[in-house]
Structure formats: C-alpha cells, structure tokens
C-alpha cells in the first residue's frame, strides 16, 4: 500500500514516463473545509486502447502478462474507492492518458498528502527531458511550477545542474 498521496503521484507519473510522455501535468486541488480533494494527472505518452485501459486497473492482470505498468493504478483506484471517492482513466492511443481521482477528504482511510515537495523535486530534476506542470490549489493559495518555464529561464544550463537543484529545493520550501 501507498502511505501517502504523494507516493501515488510518483507512481502514476512513473507510468507516464514509461509511456514515453514529454509533457506531464499534475494537479492537486483541495478544499480546506469541504470534502473536495482532486488529483488529476495528464500525459502525452503513447496512450492505451480501451481494452488495455481497462486491464491496467485490474491488479490481477499484471502477473501473467509481464506488462510494463505496475500496480500503481489499481492501488490508487483502491485508495479512491475506499474513501468513497471516484476514479477515472481515459486514454487514447497516440494521444496520452489522463487519470482523475476525487477522494473524499473527510474519510478516515484517506492517506495524508505526504511529502509533495520531494516528489516534485525528484520528478523535475530526475527527468530533465520531460516538462512538468505542477499545480497545487487549496482554499487559501495556489502554487504552480512549470519546468518548461524553468528551463527557458536557464537557457542551456540543465535543470539537474547542482546549483539549480539547490535553488529548486529552497524555492519549493518557500512557496509550496
């Protein structure tokens, strides 16, 4: 089981990376007072046909086929449904995949959000060739980090340059 929502994010994004995505967006939207807690992850990877999209949601499908997608999708779906929330996966071959989850934030079985900062940092610098758009919204604030913008500001300096890593780590501490 995943003990944090942030670990779920890491895992779903790992699928997007395996699918060859160049652009991945991760949106987290929380209502501090109410039950709204949305996680929306979109990629422009290879996508899946409807049969495969159905199969990757089944935890018992994986062992026999040696598929490349791990257990991350069924685990996330399980977490969503345990909290009384909803899970949807839409995918189109050649276009990409989108996973949208609505958790019921008031449910006692909902794992904590966890360490979102480290998740964003390691994804951004561990996959320098991929553009990430991270958005975190709650009732009081909104945080957006677009790594395409970061790269543009950096010119030819790679996003995984030591000084950039240190900068991003501090930047996330301050703003997220």
């Amino acid at each position: 089981m995943m003990d944090e929502i942030a670990s779920h994010i890491m895992d779903i994004v790992a699928n997007s990376l395996t699918a060859g995505a160049h652009n991945i967006s991760v949106l987290i939207e929380k209502d501090n007072e109410g039950p709204l807690f949305i996680l929306d992850i979109k990629d422009d990877g290879v996508g899946m046909d409807s049969e495969t999209a159905k199969k990757v949601q089944d935890p018992f499908f994986s062992t026999k086929t040696g598929r490349k997608v791990g257990l991350g999708i069924p685990l996330l779906k399980g977490t969503a449904e345990t909290t009384g929330g909803t899970f949807s996966l839409t995918s189109e071959p050649g276009r990409g995949t989108r996973i949208r989850v609505a958790f019921n934030a008031g449910h006692p079985d909902l794992p904590p959000l966890g360490n979102l900062k480290d998740t964003i940092l390691v994804l951004a610098v561990g996959n320098p060739e991929v553009n990430f758009l991270f958005t975190y919204k709650d009732s009081s604030r909104e945080f957006v980090l677009d790594t395409a913008e970061v790269k543009e500001l950096l010119g030819g300096v790679p996003i995984n340059h030591p000084e950039v890593i240190s900068f991003l780590s501090k930047y996330l501490d301050e703003h997220l």
Partner: peptide, 25 residues
C-alpha cells in the same frame, strides 16, 4: 523517492557538476 532525493541533494550540496541523477521504472 527518499533515496533519489538524497542523491540529488548530496550532488547539489557538493556541487558535483559531472554527476547526473535520473530515475527509471
């Protein structure tokens, strides 16, 4: 994630410009 983060931060802290840390499946 904690392992990847440790490598990334140590490389940053020590300014090891000739080392690259990436992730795989």
């Amino acid at each position: 994630r904690e392992v990847l983060k440790t490598f990334v931060e140590e490389i940053g802290r020590r300014n090891l410009t000739d080392v690259v840390v990436t992730q795989t499946g």
